[in-house]
Computed example of a mutant assay.
Amino acid sequence: MSDDPSLSVPTSASDLFRLLTPASDSGPFRMPIEDVVTINRRVVIIGRVERGEVHGGDIIELSGDGQSITARVVRVEFLCWRGDGEPSASVGDNVGLRLARVRAEQIRVGWIANAQSAVEIS
């Protein structure tokens, strides 16, 4: 058996929570896109926030396969509504982002959603 603590099995709920929670939420918004759906003619991208926060009204950049497009977040959707005011998503949240200015055919699973200012143009 190894003495490496990173290989140990969680023994409590707090150990499990620490294991599942990302180490840092600093930095600009970043979310890998796990699914793209259309609901009532609106495009919704689904994923887990890896870094930063996103709010309704934010402009984000969707990029992958050497392409990038800009979209506005109309609303942050949660599978389980927390009911604590204006919805926003932060690190670890599994969310759907309802978008404007984009069509579902323009986006692919595996692309990354970033805060617009976080994307470097090369």
Score class of each variant (00 low, 15 high):
87 P>S: 06
110 G>T: 05
88 S>L: 14
85 G>F: 07
7 L>S: 10
9 V>C: 08
25 D>F: 07
36 V>M: 04
115 A>D: 15
107 I>D: 01
109 V>Y: 02
6 S>L: 15
66 G>R: 08
65 D>N: 15
61 E>N: 13
111 W>E: 09
3 D>N: 07
76 V>L: 02
66 G>S: 08
83 G>Y: 09
32 P>I: 03
66 G>M: 10
1 M>S: 12
117 S>M: 07
88 S>M: 15
1 M>P: 09
45 I>R: 00
16 L>E: 08
114 N>E: 12
52 G>V: 03
104 A>C: 05
118 A>W: 03
2 S>V: 04
69 I>V: 13
66 G>Y: 05
35 D>Q: 15
77 E>Y: 05
102 V>G: 02
15 D>K: 10
67 Q>R: 14
97 L>Y: 01
52 G>H: 02
15 D>P: 01
9 V>H: 07
101 R>G: 00
61 E>R: 12
113 A>P: 06
34 E>C: 07
74 V>K: 11
90 S>E: 10
119 V>Q: 14
87 P>E: 07
71 A>R: 02
8 S>M: 11
27 G>W: 10
121 I>Q: 13
7 L>E: 13
107 I>L: 08
67 Q>E: 14
82 R>I: 09
105 E>Q: 13
83 G>Q: 12
50 E>Q: 15
81 W>R: 14
49 V>P: 01
24 S>R: 13
111 W>L: 08
90 S>K: 10
63 S>R: 14
42 R>V: 07
36 V>F: 03
67 Q>F: 11
112 I>M: 15
9 V>K: 09
98 R>L: 11
43 V>F: 02
103 R>G: 06
47 G>P: 01
27 G>I: 11
76 V>W: 00
10 P>C: 06
16 L>F: 12
88 S>A: 12
112 I>H: 09
58 D>L: 03
2 S>I: 04
30 R>W: 02
55 H>R: 15
101 R>T: 10
62 L>P: 03
106 Q>I: 05
23 A>H: 10
103 R>I: 07
63 S>L: 15
36 V>L: 05
84 D>V: 11
39 I>F: 13
110 G>D: 04
36 V>W: 01
99 L>F: 01
48 R>T: 15
4 D>R: 07
4 D>L: 08
84 D>N: 15
61 E>K: 12
29 F>P: 00
99 L>N: 00
78 F>P: 05
107 I>Q: 01
10 P>F: 08
93 D>T: 10
108 R>A: 14
4 D>W: 06
90 S>Y: 06
100 A>F: 06
82 R>W: 10
70 T>F: 08
115 A>G: 14
110 G>V: 08
104 A>H: 02
8 S>A: 15
17 F>Q: 12
107 I>H: 00
121 I>P: 00
59 I>L: 09
91 V>H: 02
62 L>T: 04
17 F>M: 12
57 G>M: 02
110 G>M: 04
74 V>Q: 11
91 V>A: 15
104 A>L: 05
61 E>G: 11
81 W>M: 10
4 D>C: 06
108 R>T: 12
18 R>W: 05
17 F>K: 13
45 I>M: 03
5 P>R: 01
12 S>Y: 04
91 V>I: 14
31 M>F: 04
89 A>W: 00
1 M>Y: 09
65 D>E: 11
94 N>A: 13
8 S>N: 10
71 A>D: 03
70 T>E: 11
110 G>I: 05
31 M>D: 05
